[in-house]
């Protein structure tokens, strides 16, 4: 009985702690979105749904949403395709396999700020490494940060560099769970490498991929540091996403209510998309191969 009470106490304690850490700020942010406020210390003025009305009428909100979606989809697609491809190569036995595996995961250990600085040193149109290499062949380089497509492309590129190792690690782990006998059975059945991939590897990785895409989707859609460090939403809001917009409104324009409304809408959109996604690709069913 004493044991039971302790377990209940620990359970309630952890729920309360989580409530304070996660629930508190969430409730506060949602509450803030119904007020007008210039700072966190000043007096709050109730405005009802006015912040939401303003936000959804703001073309910049929808542009930020579209930008975020584009960047997230492109990044996830490349991260998953490259991650699966590289994991398949690393899963084969070859000389120095463990060293190559370790090296391939290295970028994941880099702090985002360091990765962004490295990317800028390489890509800078005036003094970057890429510029000097291309210049030695007589080729000029355009300013990637001056155009929306190249700026978004750069964000995607750096995110792929940083987070593909995460996908590689997950997929490599997933590959270990596929019994080799399935491949042997398929070989005897007459399936070549391509059919083995589609009929055994992909279904076998389904549960891993469902989770990886879910996590990468959430993280990419909410990505702030990488975008802020590389482009600050520019040029001309071409890389503005909902997190950077919320930050800009709250901390640069001192419109806390507006920023909170953007953040709350972003949260609701993401939650909605993820619920639909999990309905379409249930994790449990994927695991059981339904």
């Amino acid at each position: 009985m004493v044991q039971d009470r302790r377990v209940v106490a620990l359970f309630i304690g952890s729920i309360l702690l989580l409530g304070v850490i996660i629930g508190g700020p969430l409730v506060y942010a949602i509450m803030l979105s119904f007020y007008s406020a210039k700072s966190f210390v000043g007096e709050l003025q109730w405005v009802g749904l006015a912040n939401y009305a303003k936000t959804i009428q703001d073309p910049l909100f929808w542009q930020a949403f579209a930008n975020g979606l584009m960047i997230a989809l492109a990044a996830i697609f490349l991260q998953v395709v490259l991650g699966v491809g590289i994991a398949l190569v690393l899963n084969r036995r070859f000389f120095g396999q463990s060293v190559v595996r370790a090296v391939s995961i290295l970028p994941y250990f880099l702090p985002t700020v360091v990765a962004c600085l490295i990317a800028q040193w390489i890509l800078d149109p005036n003094y970057g490494l890429l510029k000097s290499i291309l210049a030695s062949f007589g080729i000029g380089i355009a300013d990637w940060s001056a155009q929306g497509v190249t700026a978004r492309g750069t964000i995607v590129l750096v995110s792929v560099w940083l987070w593909t190792p995460f996908v590689i690690t997950c997929v490599l782990a997933g590959l270990q769970t596929i019994p080799t006998q399935l491949y042997e059975a398929a070989r005897v059945d007459g399936a070549g490498a391509w059919r083995q991939f589609w009929h055994i590897t992909v279904p076998g990785l389904r549960s891993v991929l469902v989770v990886v895409i879910l996590l990468r989707g959430i993280w990419m859609f909410n990505k702030f540091d990488l975008i802020w460090l590389l482009t600050k939403g520019g040029p001309l809001n071409q890389t503005e996403t909902l997190p950077t917009l919320a930050y800009r409104k709250s901390f640069l324009e001192f419109n806390l209510g507006g920023g909170a409304a953007v953040a709350t809408l972003s949260f609701l959109i993401l939650a909605g998309v993820m619920l639909i996604y999990l309905r379409l690709f249930p994790i449990d069913d994927a695991k059981q191969g339904r």
Binding site: Q181, E184, R187, V188, A191, I200, P203, G204
Partner: peptide, 19 residues
């Protein structure tokens, strides 16, 4: 390769395609 030998094999763990 196995596919060109026209053999069929039954494995100890059945090796049925789970999906």
């Amino acid at each position: 390769p196995p596919k060109d030998r026209n053999v069929a094999m039954v494995f100890q763990n059945y090796a049925l395609y789970p999906q």
